[in-house]
């Protein structure tokens, strides 16, 4: 005689429905290790999402304030160059770069006691709208300083453009304007190099580096303190609103 289906089902249900078996230790060990891995993955995702949100926010803020800020930055860069004149010392070589507006090079190719040859070449980009930033009394002419012991004017071959003779007594040289340029430029470069060399030690440092790539102002849109692994915000510059936290060691 064969067992009915319902009876068979009831037999198995009664015997197996509440059966208990003790698991081995490896099960809990496996659970904890997998939970740790999942938690780490979750944390990593959160950090990535936060970083992406911050970058998007910064980009949006920058785009919103870009026009005003760009003008301000250009004005700041123009000022020191505008005060410079081409009444350069003979035998001095100066190079003034005003990016992206103008690239001006001034080269003097004669020692003091030789026949002075002052050659100035002003390169103006074709797309440039505003005039060069250097204050040149006559921009289209080459100024040749003639001292008393030099009688002859320079050979026409040495001069690329038109020239005029300047009487040093009537138009005396200003005192070492080029030296000012040379004193300023390397300082900026050193500062720039120092910034580039600064290591990124933390998440805040990474964000600082990102922001500095976008925002060239001294006070960045947002600054983080990456010292000692902390990622606190130390400064915010929204154009109108500026908040900057002074560092304790500076006070």
């Amino acid at each position: 005689m064969n067992m009915p289906d319902k009876e068979l089902d009831a037999l198995f249900r009664a015997q197996l429905n509440n059966i208990e078996t003790e698991p081995s230790e490896r099960v809990w060990a496996g659970i904890t290790s997998q939970m740790e891995a999942k938690a780490m993955q979750r944390r990593r995702r959160l950090r990535m999402a936060a970083a992406a949100a911050i970058v998007m926010l910064l980009t949006a803020c920058l785009l919103a304030t870009r026009n005003n800020d760009t003008n301000a930055v250009v004005t700041m860069k123009k000022e020191p160059v505008a005060q410079t004149s081409i009444n350069a010392m003979p035998s001095a070589v100066a190079s003034v770069n005003v990016k992206p507006m103008v690239k001006t090079q001034l080269a003097v190719s004669a020692p003091v006691h030789d026949k002075p040859k002052v050659v100035a070449a002003i390169q103006e980009p074709a797309e440039m709208e505003s005039p060069p930033l250097l204050t040149v009394q006559e921009p289209q002419e080459i100024m040749i300083a003639q001292t008393k012991d030099i009688a002859a004017p320079p050979a026409p071959d040495d001069i690329a453009l038109t020239h005029k003779i300047i009487n040093p007594e009537a138009e005396p040289f200003q005192t070492k304007p080029v030296a000012i340029i040379q004193a300023n430029l390397p300082a900026d470069n050193e500062q720039g190099k120092a910034t580039e060399k600064k290591k990124i030690n933390s998440f805040g440092g990474l964000l600082n580096a990102l922001v500095s790539k976008i925002d060239k102002r001294k006070d960045k849109l947002i600054e983080f303190n990456d010292a000692d692994g902390e990622n606190n915000i130390t400064g915010i510059n929204l154009g109108i609103i500026r908040i900057k936290k002074e560092e304790e060691d500076q006070q």
């Binding site: 509440n18 059966i19 208990e20 078996t21 698991p23 099960v27 809990w28």
Partner: peptide, 20 residues
């Protein structure tokens, strides 16, 4: 709950290792 739940899994598995 581990022992009760292992009992459930045992019914669906071929052996205890698989059930664990």
């Amino acid at each position: 709950f581990a022992s009760k739940m292992l009992g459930v899994c045992m019914r669906y598995a071929t052996d205890k290792m698989e059930a664990e």
